[in-house]
């Protein structure tokens, strides 16, 4: 009857969209590539694509963390402030001790980021403050600390040793180091979310928090963990940012947090929790990067960039919601809340 037939017949259609949402994104990206390359011949070159990858690497890394948090029904608005604070602090250390080995700086950045992330995690799990409020608060606090720390000053390219500048820009395996780092982060994230117990628990927690508790998943620890991971990735990203732009400014990555949410949402992460994949988020970031690049190259004014980005987010959300709703009417009944 209804519980069987419509569900089975429509299951294929729905799971097609659910599983191959990435395919739809790829199709859209290919379409964009064709359109842009017809407009501007400089687009379809190896160098330009390397440029695009370089530009989206940091966004992609943080969007992965953001996506992971959104899967647990949370949100981390403090990512950009965390990144900026870490970038400023490691730059200061480099300014004072230019001889510090780069690897130590990377570890320092990760360490600092993990502290900032665990503060978020503690406020949310122990303090029982809703994630949006907690991270909205630390967004202000961490950004304020950047100003306080530097007295409003910037760290300029002159102050940074050249070895450090090579961290992001140097090449390995034929790609810029920053891109390689982003790929490594993505691979780790993929393995973690698909093949590690704790990673799978993130999905379980997001899709049904009550059931997760009953099934013996330590929900508080899992929640704490995702914010610490987010802090770690932001710390790493902060170091890479300082290296790539050869500077640390008080307004580093200002407003970047909403871009990371946008990349995750375009990539198919559901704000209702439980749904989202690593390839999807990466494609979301890639889409944003291609649009940014394409607009810069083509004759369209760069002032359209933000508007197009916003339009795309809306488009992704609207199409997702429409598909979901159409499917829902034919889905198994009785599964409410």
């Amino acid at each position: 009857m209804t519980t069987d037939h419509p569900a089975t017949s429509k299951r294929s259609l729905f799971s097609f969209f659910a599983q191959y949402r990435e395919l739809a994104l790829i199709g859209f990206i290919l379409l964009l590539i064709v359109i842009i390359s017809l407009q501007s011949p400089g687009f379809l070159t190896f160098d330009n694509f390397q440029d695009i990858l370089l530009n989206i690497s940091i966004l992609a890394m943080i969007a992965l963390a953001q996506g992971m948090i959104i899967i647990t029904r949370g949100i981390d608005l403090s990512v950009a402030s965390t990144l900026a604070l870490v970038a400023m602090m490691v730059s200061f250390v480099l300014k004072a001790y230019p001889e510090t080995p780069v690897i130590l700086i990377v570890l320092l950045g990760i360490g600092l980021g993990s502290v900032l992330g665990s503060v978020n995690g503690l406020i949310i799990t122990v303090g029982k403050v809703p994630p949006i409020i907690a991270t909205l608060g630390t967004l202000s606090i961490y950004r304020g600390l950047v100003f306080f720390y530097s007295n409003g000053d910037w760290v300029n390219p002159i102050d940074l040793p050249s070895g450090f500048k090579q961290l992001a820009k140097g090449m390995s395996l034929g790609l810029p180091n920053l891109v390689v780092v982003a790929i490594i982060v993505a691979v780790i994230a993929y393995v973690f979310l698909n093949h590690i117990q704790a990673g799978r628990d993130i999905y379980a927690l997001g899709t049904n928090p009550e059931a997760a508790k009953i099934s013996g998943i330590r929900t508080q620890q899992v929640t704490f963990m995702v914010y610490v991971i987010s802090g770690i990735i932001c710390g790493l990203a902060g170091v890479m940012w300082a290296s790539r732009y050869e500077a640390a400014q008080t307004n580093t990555a200002l407003g970047f947090e909403l871009q990371t949410v946008a990349a995750a949402v375009i990539g198919g992460v559901s704000m209702l929790g439980g749904i989202g994949t690593v390839p999807g988020v990466l494609l979301g970031a890639l889409l944003l990067g291609i649009i940014q690049n394409g607009l810069t190259l083509s004759s369209i004014s760069q002032f359209w960039q933000l508007a197009v980005q916003g339009f795309l987010i809306l488009l992704a959300v609207i199409s997702d919601a429409t598909i979901q709703r159409r499917i829902k009417t034919t889905m198994t009944r009785g599964f409410a809340k």
């Binding site: 590690i196 628990d201 379980a204 899709t207 009550e210 059931a211 997760a212 013996g216 439980g274 599964f335």
Partner: peptide, 27 residues
Amino acid sequence: ELSIFPDLDIAENIFVGRRPTRAGGLV
């Protein structure tokens, strides 16, 4: 009130919280 995880597959629903693991903690 069933404690089902709607977005996980059948096998994972059965083993949620205690999935069999291999060396290295991989599921």
